[in-house]
Design a protein around this nucleic acid. Sequence first.
DNA 1: AAAAAAG
Length: 559
Amino acid sequence: MDAYELFRKLSTGVKFDKKRFQVDAERFQLVNRQPENELNDKKRVIEVFNSINHSTLCGKRKHNDIEKETDNINEPILLEGMPVSKSQNKRCKVPFTEEKRLKLEKEKINQLRNQHRISVTGNRIPKPITEFSELSTYDVSSKLINNIINCGYECPTPIQMQAIPAMLQGRQILACAPTGSGKTAAFLVPIIHHLGGPKRKGFRAVILSPTRELAKQTYRECLRLSEGYDFRVHIISKINQALNKYGPKSSQKFDILVTTPKRIIYLLTQDPPAISFSNVEWLIVDEVDKLFEDGTRCFRNQLETILKSCTNENLHKGMFSATNTSVVSKWCRHNLKGLITITVGHRNAATNLVEQELLFVSTERGKLMALRNIIQKGVLPPVLIFVQSKERAQELFNELIYDGVNVDVIHADRTQMQRDSVVRCFREGKIWVLICTELMARGIDFKGVNLVINYDFPPSAISYVHRIGRTGRAGHRGKAITFFTEQDTTNLRSIATIMRESGCNVPDYMLSMKKYNKMERRKQERKAPVRAKISTVPTFKRDRKKMRYSTVVLFSKKI
DNA sequence: AAAAAAG
């Protein structure tokens, strides 16, 4: 950091007391008023500055006061009592225009970041790109740039603008950007560029995902972006087959691995290890806060094991998610050297592309009524419905299957074949309504999901952000309806806050509800009666009239 | 508190 930088840092927020230092101010203005010769001006300013520095400025006065006044003079200003070194003297001879150019450049970069709501921390952060064609300045081949365009990415999203150049410079990053804003491509592009082509050195890039479905999606995206590169990209289920067929040595011919943590651990801890990570240059952890959640340190131990096996000294790590917790930030600060953190928008914010609605449904049974109402009024498929447990997913499926909608259900208790086929059918539009657990909450990119229904109230604000993030992706708009009953009080406040932050009107009483900490929330959960089964009980018809009126739209946001 | 993650 040079003296100028230091000065700027010290001076933030300090005001110049013109009355008190009127004499000094006049002297400065006197100098500034003479435009004939810039260099002369500069010399005189330094003279004035030095004289002030040594006479009037000692004692209480802060150096930053002057900085504000001399802002238009591109001269590194020396701190009181700081010895004037030779190199600093030399700096005075740097052409005025060059310093000015650098400053303007800095301002332009700041403006660009502000405009796209990118905030960064870290040292020497590269300039954001505004077009993919700029990647050629990083020696990215036209082949890759063409692939990016062919995959439908026209112009970089904020996270791509900043994360791609950072990673291309080999920097380690922690990136937090809204759901559906192109994080996957943001890490795949630099990786593909770095690897260059197949090398038969074993895995050089590993991408960790929390679910198999997400791993598969990332894998497919990787294949699309690396077309023509001839990479051996592998998702672990395939590598299992390959290893069984050709033996452990066959892993040498793979370049990129996309998988879930447990499988890696399984393969690494075999004796002898079935795979080697000694050549891994990039380790990407997708949905990083998911893998850090839970009081159990389970995943962190797994990550420790994985990191230990990445023995290459040229290992870079990249952490990505739409939500971020302090635990993750702290871990990254301690474990990633030269870290750059990139945050787009507010941390843990919902996308502003989703119209969000809270629907009071009174009781557990009111939910099924409300859902049938919504479906009967007509919904535009595809629709996602989130429930809290695998059993409830199955129960709700059993209810809806006779309603004449193409409905299916996905959760971790179904076989992998069933899961794959459900996802495929939903993508192809054969399934209109998909009932799912938290399994589908993160990262999954179904094109054109129009509506997300939170049948069960999300267990946390973070979960809410991810669930509703399945719609409103890649610039498209979407809608989310969240059911809540008399029981759902613990998380109402935090979710209402998120809704308001993303531009949605919520009643004030929700925002002023009691704040629960983690322990209290758990206590409340334990106290709460077990949820009734989702089913059409015989008394249903009797309650029908009452139920209809208890379903009231409280508010909605129009966009 | 539930869900997810090995074969």
